[in-house]
Design a protein around this nucleic acid. Structure first.
Lengths: 348, 348
DNA sequence: CTGAAAGCGCTAACAT
DNA sequence: ATGTTAGCGCTTTCAG
């Protein structure tokens, strides 16, 4: 923290023997500048080790080169969800390439009425935002507020409520259908589902895909086979498993709507002497890295989490450049077969 | 993106019938303001839905309420290290409580000569920074640059090079000693180590702790028992394991200097028919969440990753408030015994 | 192609 | 206790 005198655009101008507006011009490289002059300025910049003040630029031009990430999840929730982490990773990658920085605004630790990110969103500080999908109920007017801002924003997830918006999400319906079809092809007839109620729309889509495939194959839908895993977490699922397995007509396969929850099922099975996949097939959704190294390795539906982050930023950049015709990007999913799935046992 | 006219401090002042400096005063709440006036202003703010421009405030006051996080890791590397993620989570939690935002600057995807974060660091945009430990060799003058800035910064990790600095890290030495002592008490005499060369200082400390305990117990140190896992990753460790296990006098226990690498050992063992812990004891370092649910659950050294993030920010805030006497915070570690460790086999 | 000058929205002396 | 005013460092017309 040595007191290095702040070097401003004036210093550069003085050194190069030009006006500050000329310096500004070579910096923005939008206007034409004489080659010699440009060189002089560039040299001065290098010699003085000058870096423009983003704050000043922000106030003068209205642009900050900063994109906001709005997370309805707390840092801790984010930490425990590799899929969301991968989304963020993808966002950062593209932003990096374009010399944009990411300003992260998460929900508060305690669920306050006014999440801290709202203030940020409206502080004229960002050029655009990526908003992680929220149930409207959780933040009633987040989207309304957003639509009042002067910058573009895209939802990572499904559009919510009445506000028209740009979004990117995976093809959850298709993914769940394929997985269900695969399980049926293995011989399973009673397939339990661990869903997440009242959270993200993705869970609903996955259950819908499951139901549709059941119907398509002429299999009955048993409502009691779908239980609530609460919050996408391993623990939540672990607690929900008994509702599925402690009954005479237990399912021979369990489809958890994300991998973390599938791990909870795996854990329960292990602790209760059930062999996977001999006694019970367990599958997840996401294909987080840990899915490949769990025991047994998890059969799951791959969702290109990092790529989704890429797409969200690319869409945002298009909006920043003046618009796009496609308001929704849907990325595809695929079933990844590993060792946690197999035919049902002879008799359960 | 409806064009809502930007509401400024002037609008508020006009509405409340006061001057802009009065508005500024109630906003900063530092100076005393008449109760009635304050109410008027507050009402106007609410009615107009006013939010101050952080950019303008930044340029006028020199403070932005933004803290920078400098990561020498790429987003992808960050993604694959739960310990680092937890550090960040901790940072965000405290920042949130204080209404600060986090600006993340990571290394580029391709390892460029001039990492993108350097520009950010010098752009007068942040009030302070948390810098994840980097080997000086990787970014020769990052620390020099930092020390020329006008804001305080703290290292999450060990101090590097000649620049005096504030830092917070775990007691790696003590942790590794305790773990080694535990393994010796179990009966192990030949303990392999998977380290990470030329990366973070933490790895060196852990190996040092291992050697010290060996010496303390009068056991010989066999240099060939320490191999390089390259990059802290599961794959890196997986590839290094053969050097330890494919030899007649193979170690009966392997201590990987982080959990991810321990998983690589677990995987190798499983694929080569070695039972853990019956045939081989495997332990890690960090105690990331997955350590509790791996198969078998991993014995490891707990490092309070989230708390380390907390400490880093607390230290930074102290610096922001004018200084502190302690320039280094060391958080303690502890051995967590799970199922991956046991006595050595009768004969190997 | 270059420079002068007017802000951008706010804070912080300094007056009143 | 409140208002006036001079910047903060930059971009951006508008002249030259």
């Amino acid at each position: 923290m040595t007191e290095t005198p702040k070097v401003t655009i004036y210093d550069v101008a003085a050194r190069a023997g030009v006006s500050i507006s000329t310096v500004s011009k070579v910096l923005s490289s939008s206007t034409r500048v004489n080659k010699v002059t440009r060189e002089k300025v560039l040299t001065a910049i290098k010699q003085l080790n000058y870096v423009p003040s983003l704050a000043a630029r922000g106030i003068a031009s209205g642009r900050t080169s900063i994109i906001g990430l709005v997370s309805p999840y707390t840092p801790l929730q984010l930490l425990h969800d590799p899929h969301l982490q991968a989304n963020i990773c993808g966002i950062e990658e593209i932003l990096n390439e374009h010399d944009y920085a990411l300003l992260i605004a998460t929900a508060n630790r305690e669920h306050e009425s006014a999440p801290s990110y709202e203030r940020l969103l409206r502080s004229n500080y960002i050029d655009g935002a990526v908003v992680m999908e929220t149930q409207e109920s959780k933040s009633p007017d987040l989207h309304r507020q957003l639509s009042q801002q002067r910058y573009p924003w895209v939802i990572l997830g499904y559009p919510v409520g009445m506000v028209p918006s740009y979004c990117v999400h995976a093809d959850d319906l298709q993914g769940a259908q394929s997985m269900t079809e695969y399980l049926i092809s293995l011989g399973h007839r009673r397939i339990g589902v661990i869903e997440v109620k009242d959270s993200a729309y993705a869970s609903e889509e996955r259950v819908r895909g499951y139901r549709q495939m059941l119907a398509q194959k002429g299999l009955p839908f048993d409502k009691s086979l779908v239980v609530d895993g609460r919050d996408w977490s391993t623990e939540g699922a672990y607690k929900a498993v008994p509702k599925l397995l402690e009954r005479p007509d237990r399912p021979t396969a369990i489809f958890a709507v994300n991998d973390c929850m599938a791990f909870g099922v795996l854990q329960y099975a292990r602790e209760h002497g059930l062999l996977v996949p001999e006694d019970l097939t367990v599958v997840g959704f996401d294909d987080i890295p840990a899915a490949a190294t769990s025991f047994p390795p998890l059969t799951t539906i791959r969702q290109p989490s990092i790529q989704m982050g890429h797409e969200a930023i690319k869409l945002l950049f298009k909006l920043l450049e003046g618009g796009t015709n496609s308001s929704r990007v849907v990325v595809s999913t695929e079933v990844v077969v590993r060792a946690s799935s197999g035919p049902p046992p002879e008799k359960v």
